[in-house]
């Protein structure tokens, strides 16, 4: 009897230790980024593009990468939304959510979700050769859009699948067509969820580096058209960190802090949206 109690106690302690390590590591990461990032933050960092000797530790900032990342992530999210909204509507309104085709599409999306971003990057390179695209914002948007497509689609799908079935039935029984039901009832009902899905995809798009190495390139300028190469924050951090000059490496910490703040901001925004708009749905 005592042994059983001792085992219970032991595992309880082990579980608490494990939880402490895991949540502690999150704090450790945030703490490190804050401590290293804050002393190196300056207004120049977020308001200027790199000037002549930037990579030798001279003046300038990473405005090019901040703007570039936003262009890329916004473009990729819109591209992914255009592809996923019809997909999700077909799976949940036209077909039954548990039909064979819906399940196959769902499985494919889950599998695509697991494909590493470097493979999307490599595929993007193949695609660019095939379509004759050069390294550009457009190529970056296409590849990152495909990368975040499964995340957005699966999140939206879960939201729509969990919408009350009665809503759909009520709409049909009033004589609405499936299309009208989809847009006037289902999309409206799941709007907060759809917004969260888009933000989730956006967050992934802004933080991914491996897929844009091949496709978006890097530049010190803010892109003027979608055919220009574009700088992104993760790559800016990565390049600056591999510099042998201490000042440049320190800027990487500040850039990391900026990226972290953006990601936290997106996370907070999506929580707020869910809270605010959930009250309008059934």
């Amino acid at each position: 009897m005592n042994l059983r109690k001792a085992e219970e106690k032991l595992f309880n302690i082990l579980m608490r230790i494990a939880a402490c390590i895991i949540f502690g590591s999150l704090f450790a990461i945030s703490f490190t980024i804050l401590v290293k990032g804050i002393p190196n933050m300056s207004w120049d960092m977020i308001s200027k593009t790199p000037s002549g000797g930037f990579y030798l530790g001279k003046e300038g900032g990473i405005l090019n990468a901040i703007i570039g990342s936003f262009y890329l992530a916004i473009g990729a999210t819109i591209f992914a939304l255009i592809l996923t909204i019809p997909m999700v509507i077909y799976m949940n309104v036209y077909a039954s959510p548990n039909s064979r085709l819906s399940n196959i599409v769902r499985l494919c999306l889950d599998i695509m979700f697991g494909i590493p971003s470097i493979v999307y990057g490599a595929f993007g390179f193949v695609l660019m050769l095939f379509l004759g695209l050069k390294v550009s914002l457009l190529a970056g948007i296409v590849v990152v859009g495909l990368l975040i497509l499964p995340i957005i689609a699966r999140t939206m799908d879960e939201v729509m699948r969990n919408a009350p079935k009665e809503l759909k039935d009520a709409s049909f029984s009033l004589g609405a067509t499936k299309w009208e039901t989809a847009f006037k009832v289902m999309v409206r009902q799941s709007l907060p969820g759809l917004a969260t899905a888009a933000l989730l995809g956006f967050g992934r798009a802004i933080g991914d580096a491996a897929s844009v190495i091949f496709t978006a390139g890097f530049t010190d300028n803010i892109p003027h058209s979608i055919n220009d190469p574009v700088a992104t924050l993760p790559l800016a951090i990565f390049f600056q960190l591999s510099s042998p000059i201490a000042e440049v490496r320190e800027r990487a910490y500040a850039a990391a802090l900026i990226l972290t703040i953006i990601i936290f901001g997106i996370s907070l925004l999506s929580r707020y949206l869910i809270k605010k708009y959930s009250k309008h749905t059934v």
Partner: peptide
């Protein structure tokens, strides 16, 4: 799960 991998790399 939302933290970009480059941040983990810096850490």
């Amino acid at each position: 799960s939302g933290i970009p991998s480059v941040i983990y790399g810096i850490w």
